[in-house]
Amino acid sequence: MWNAVRHLPYAAVSCALYMAGSVAFAPRFPFAVVDMYAHMQDHHEGAVPVFLIDGRVADVRDVDKIQGIPEIAFSEQGIPCSMGYALDEIHYYVAEHSVPEDAPPGPLKVAFGWRRFRLSDTGVVEEPIRVVASGTAHPVAP
């Protein structure tokens, strides 16, 4: 028995144990099945969250005291979005820099929306931006 153990290929044993553990317990730390990009089939529609300032795509961090864009606007339901991080970034910023509805409106018109893509025979086609919610904001002081 001990003779067999001393020739054990530890790398292979650890590999097998980690695979078995991951199948059984992932995503519980430290086990994981990193299946990123493993849901590609039928990804024939796309959507990218965008923030607009005065009608142009811009960085949400350029404005402050945002008003009129509710939490529900950031719902991904029914949206083929594969960029959750970009949505989270805009969502967190707007949540943290919003002011109450009865505050004085800002001079800039802002909006949140989706830039949609679809596949055609010739390649990827970009569709017009679909605005979900709009409001006002103040420019960030330099």
Binding site: M40, D42, H43, H44, G46, F117, L119, G123, V124
Partner: peptide
């Protein structure tokens, strides 16, 4: 599908 992800 990958072309779509890259386009995004």
């Amino acid at each position: 599908s990958m072309a779509m992800m890259i386009a995004e």
